[in-house]
Computed example of a mutant assay.
Amino acid sequence: MEGTSVRRPRGPSMADVARLAGVSGQTVSRVANGKQNVDSVTRARVQDAMRQLGYRPNGAARALRNGEFRSIGVIVFELSTFGTTRTLDAIATAATARGYSVNLMPVLSVNRQAVTDALTRLGEQAVDGVIMMIEARILDEVQLPVGLPVVVVHAGAHYDHPVVDTDQTQGARLATEHLLDLGHRTVWHVGGPPSSFAADQRRRSWEQTLRDHGRDVPPVLIGDWSSTSGYDAGCELAVDPAVTAVFVANDQMALGVLRALHAHGRTVPADVSVVGFDDMEEAAQFWPPLTTVRQTFTEVGRCAVDTLLAELHSSGGHTQVAVATTLVVRNSTAAPS
């Protein structure tokens, strides 16, 4: 009949489960909240009654009783970048495996107020801790919350919070030394944006490796992680006959460098060797297949979740987790002709 409302049937209650299982409501509550002071036979009977009735424990009420929401907040910028998407996927997988949900909070404009607002919103949505996936240069300006466990997925943060990141210094050294070991006199570098700590660490490590080997340090060309910026940098490098080896700060820019060299008649690797950073899936399908530094994003995400959960049950500290990189040698590098 028009104008009448239909009342949704009431779901099964804890009392319904207790009656079916033949136990007290208090016993059902213990089982629902994961308490251990219930014998295995009784626990199995209660769980079977829950399944028969389709009873689901009230997670919000349980959180209020236990002081734990089983939820992790993740604040992130630049959702579309390769490393971010892979790390987010790893965080979600690791959190789910440990019985936690993930509350994603994208930050569209990276500034102090935007990050502070994101932290406030997450606090209102009841999370047990936060993983920050934003450049540490911005985080240095943000007052992180007191009492809320925080893990930063980035190098260079200056906080009394754990930091988890790829070993950027090791990766850049592997790339640069590979090219020097092939016989190149020096190595040019296409770096990421100045705002990026990862790009800054890769650049510093490249420069220090050249100095450690007594080699000249060429001027750095700066990109923005995109293949277009890599192409622009590659066009500058291609017209300089002295350029025989290039370390590019990520694979997407390396793709642009490869195209620019080809467009200018410079053969890779006969004329110029190129090394990238990331080992994105497509790197093996570039022409030629790209030699690159592999980041294990799965391990970074897993370590971030494990470190945050450890923070939930400790007093915190200055944990620094550096996930090792490996060099994947393909056909874009060779000895100079």
Rank of each mutant, 00 (worst) to 15 (best):
V107C: 07
S109E: 14
N111H: 13
N111Q: 07
N111G: 13
Q113A: 14
V115R: 07
D117C: 01
D117S: 11
L119H: 06
R121W: 02
L122Y: 06
L122W: 07
L122K: 03
L122C: 03
G123S: 05
E124F: 00
Q125M: 11
Q125T: 08
A126S: 13
V127M: 04
G129Y: 05
G129R: 07
M132D: 04
M132P: 03
I134C: 03
I134E: 06
A136G: 05
A136R: 04
I138R: 03
D140N: 13
D140F: 02
E141C: 01
E141P: 00
V142R: 08
Q143S: 15
Q143N: 12
Q143L: 09
L144C: 07
P145T: 10
L148G: 01
P149G: 03
V150P: 04
V151D: 06
V152F: 08
V153A: 14
V153G: 07
G156Q: 07
G156R: 12
A157W: 10
A157K: 07
H158K: 14
Y159C: 11
Y159D: 06
D160S: 12
V163M: 13
V164G: 03
V164H: 06
V164W: 02
D165P: 00
T166A: 11
T166P: 01
T166G: 01
D167S: 10
G171P: 04
A172V: 05
A172Y: 06
L174K: 04
T176D: 08
T176R: 05
H178M: 09
L180R: 06
D181F: 00
L182F: 02
G183S: 09
G183Q: 10
R185A: 15
W188G: 08
H189M: 12
G191C: 12
G191M: 01
S196G: 10
A198G: 14
D200L: 12
Q201W: 09
R202F: 10
R203G: 11
R203E: 15
W206D: 08
W206Q: 05
E207D: 08
T209W: 01
L210H: 08
R211M: 10
R211Y: 01
D212I: 00
